[in-house]
Nucleic acid binder design. Structure first.
Length: 497
DNA sequence: GCGATCAGTT
DNA sequence: CACAACTGATCGC
C-alpha cells in the first residue's frame, strides 16, 4: 500500500519478519533507514494496527457527526475485551516466589495497553505514560506513537480499516497468510491459506481472485471450486497429515474437528521454529495424539478463542447427539407422523442429522444446493442417505435461520402432524445444559417444538485450556486478536493448577 | 450484474 | 443477551 513499486518482477517474496522480542511482540528495526524498503512488513503492521484492538470487533464505525476526539458511546465500551488469557481461564497468575532459584519462571502476560505503558483509551490519551517494557523499544514505539501529538489516530484508523490485513493473519518468517482474502493482495504474501470453508474465513474470495495460490484441505478445495468458481489454477489442495514443503516451509494440515474440511495448520520453518494455527477447531483428547503435537515444541500457537471464557461450557458432541436421537425417538413414538427438522449452516453439524438418520433408519432430505455440497464431501455413509424428495423423508435439514415457528407450520398436512426441530448451536450454554442435557427445555408453539441443543463445533473453555496446557507453546496468540499472552523464555509450564 | 460493505437475524 | 455464520439491503462501479 505504501509503495507503488513494480509488482510482477521476478523478485522472490520477502517473508514476514520473524523477529519477535522477548515479550513476543515484533521487533522494530533499530534504524528506520535500514529497512525502508520493507516498510509494510510484519512489525510495521503490528504496530500500525494500534493498541486498541477492540476496534477490530467494533460493529460500527463512529458516527461521522461526532468531533474527531469524541469517545465512543457507552455501548462500544462494552465490546471492549482486553482481558488476559489467564483471566479468561480463571487462573491466578503464577507466583514468582517459590525461591529455589527456579530462574525466571515468571510469566509475562498483560494487555497490550499495559505492555506498552498506554492507558486504555477511556479519555484523551496524550499524557498516558510513556513507560514501556524495554527502554530500547520505548524510543521507537513512542516516537511512532506520538507522531501526531495526540492519540494515535493513524493507528486507530489502520486498525479500523477493513482493507488492511491485520498482522495476526500473517505467519512471521514466512510469506504466508491464513484466512486473509478480504484485503486484496497482501504485500509480501505469496501463499494464502484457507483454514475452512465458512463465510467469515473465505470472505473476499471471488471468481476474480488472482493474488496467489490458495492452500487448503482437499475437501475445502472442492468447495472453493464448486461454490465460488475460483480458477482452479489457484487452488492447491493438501491432504491431511501429509508434509508439504511450500516456499521452504514444511506445512502439515491436521483435522480440526470443526466442520468438514477444516484444518489446523502446522508450519515448520527452516530455522526449526514451529507454529501452529488452529483456525476454528474443537480440541479433543484424540487431537493430542497427533505425532506433530506429541513430539515437537510449538513456538507460537495461534488459538481460536471463540469460547475462551469459563462461562462457555458444553457437553461432548456424542452426548448431545445421544440426546437428540433419544428425543427424536420419544417424539416419534408419541406421534409417528412427526417431521424432524435439523438446522445447520452451509457446512457443519452433519453428524447430528446423520446420527438421526442412522438411528431411525430414515433418509435425509435437504434442498438441491445443500445436497450438492454434502455429496461433494465424498462421504459415502452420508451420501447414500440423502434423498431429493421432501415427501420421502421425515428428516429435513434446513438453514439454521429457517428453523423457527413460522416456517414449516405449513408443512403440516396428512403426512406430518407435528414438527420437532433442533437448533444445534454453541451458545446454548448454562450450568444446567452443560451438565444435564435432560434439563433442556424446548420452546413449543402448537404442534411445533424447537430444541436448542449445545452442539458446538468450537472448543469449550475447558477443552481450550486442556489443549493449551498440553501443547505448552512458548508463545500464544489470539487469532481474533482480542488478547495476547506471551511467556518468557523456556520455562517449563504454562499453568499452575 | 457483480462485488464490497453494512445491518439484521437466529 | 451471548456467538458464529449467514442473509438481505444498499451502494458504487
Amino acid at each position: 500500500m505504501a509503495t507503488a513499486g513494480g509488482d510482477g518482477d521476478g523478485d522472490p517474496t520477502q517473508p514476514f519478519p520473524a523477529d519477535l522480542d522477548d515479550n513476543g511482540f515484533p521487533a522494530l528495526p533499530s534504524s528506520p533507514a535500514a529497512t525502508t524498503t520493507s516498510s509494510s512488513g510484519f512489525a510495521e503492521d503490528f504496530y500500525r494496527s494500534g493498541t486498541d484492538w477492540s476496534s477490530l470487533r467494533a460493529r460500527r464505525r463512529p458516527p461521522p457527526e461526532g468531533a474527531p476526539g469524541v469517545k465512543a458511546k457507552g455501548k462500544e465500551g462494552g465490546s471492549l475485551v482486553q482481558s488476559s488469557l489467564f483471566q479468561a481461564w480463571g487462573l491466578e497468575r503464577p507466583r514468582r516466589e517459590e525461591g529455589a532459584g527456579a530462574g525466571e519462571s515468571s510469566l509475562v502476560q498483560r494487555s497490550l495497553f499495559q505492555a506498552w505503558g498506554i492507558e486504555r483509551p477511556k479519555r484523551e490519551g496524550v499524557g498516558a505514560g510513556d513507560r514501556s517494557l524495554s527502554p530500547s523499544r520505548s524510543g521507537s514505539w513512542s516516537g511512532r506513537k506520538r507522531r501526531r501529538g495526540g492519540p494515535d489516530e493513524a493507528a486507530a484508523a489502520a486498525a479500523m480499516n477493513p482493507r488492511t490485513c491485520p498482522f495476526y493473519k500473517k505467519i512471521p518468517g514466512t510469506p504466508f497468510t491464513v484466512d486473509a482474502f478480504r484485503y486484496g493482495e497482501v504485500e509480501g504474501c505469496s501463499a494464502y491459506f484457507l483454514s475452512h470453508f465458512h463465510h467469515d474465513h473465505y470472505g473476499g474470495l471471488t471468481k476474480k481472485w488472482c493474488h496467489g495460490p490458495i492452500y487448503c484441505s482437499a475437501l475445502t478445495a472442492r468447495l472453493v471450486k464448486m461454490c465460488l468458481s475460483i480458477n482452479s489454477d489457484y487452488i492447491c489442495p493438501l491432504e491431511l497429515d501429509t508434509e508439504y514443503v511450500i516456499e521452504g516451509v514444511t506445512v502439515t494440515l491436521l483435522e480440526a474437528n470443526h466442520c468438514p474440511g477444516a484444518a489446523l495448520i502446522h508450519f515448520l520453518l527452516s530455522d526449526g521454529k514451529t507454529y501452529l494455527h488452529t483456525g476454528d477447531f474443537r480440541a479433543s483428547r484424540s487431537m493430542q495424539l497427533h505425532p506433530l503435537l506429541q513430539r515437537g515444541r510449538i513456538n507460537l500457537l495461534y488459538l481460536d478463542t471463540t469460547y475462551c471464557n469459563p462461562k462457555y461450557k458444553f457437553p461432548p458432541q456424542e452426548d448431545v447427539i445421544d440426546f437428540v436421537v433419544s428425543t427424536a425417538r420419544r417424539y416419534l413414538k408419541k406421534q409417528p407422523k412427526t417431521l424432524i427438522v435439523v438446522g445447520a449452516y452451509s457446512i457443519g453439524k452433519e453428524n447430528v442429522y446423520l446420527a438421526i438418520s442412522q438411528a431411525l433408519e430414515v433418509p435425509i432430505y435437504t434442498d438441491a444446493s445443500r445436497r450438492r455440497i454434502l455429496h461433494s464431501f465424498g462421504w459415502t455413509d452420508l451420501s447414500k442417505r440423502i434423498c431429493p424428495c421432501n415427501q420421502s423423508s421425515p428428516l429435513h435439514v434446513l438453514p439454521l435461520g429457517s428453523v423457527n415457528h413460522e416456517k414449516y407450520l405449513g408443512t403440516l398436512n396428512q403426512r406430518f402432524l407435528a414438527v420437532l426441530a433442533f437448533r444445534p448451536t454453541g451458545w446454548t450454554f448454562s450450568e444446567a445444559t452443560g451438565k444435564q442435557l435432560d434439563l433442556i427445555k424446548p420452546r413449543s408453539n402448537g404442534s411445533v417444538t424447537i430444541y436448542g441443543v449445545p452442539y458446538s463445533e468450537h472448543s469449550s473453555f475447558t477443552e481450550l485450556k486442556d489443549f493449551v496446557m498440553f501443547v505448552r507453546p512458548l508463545k500464544l496468540s489470539d487469532i481474533q486478536c482480542v488478547k495476547i499472552m506471551v511467556r518468557e523464555e523456556q520455562s517449563t509450564y504454562f499453568f499452575e493448577c
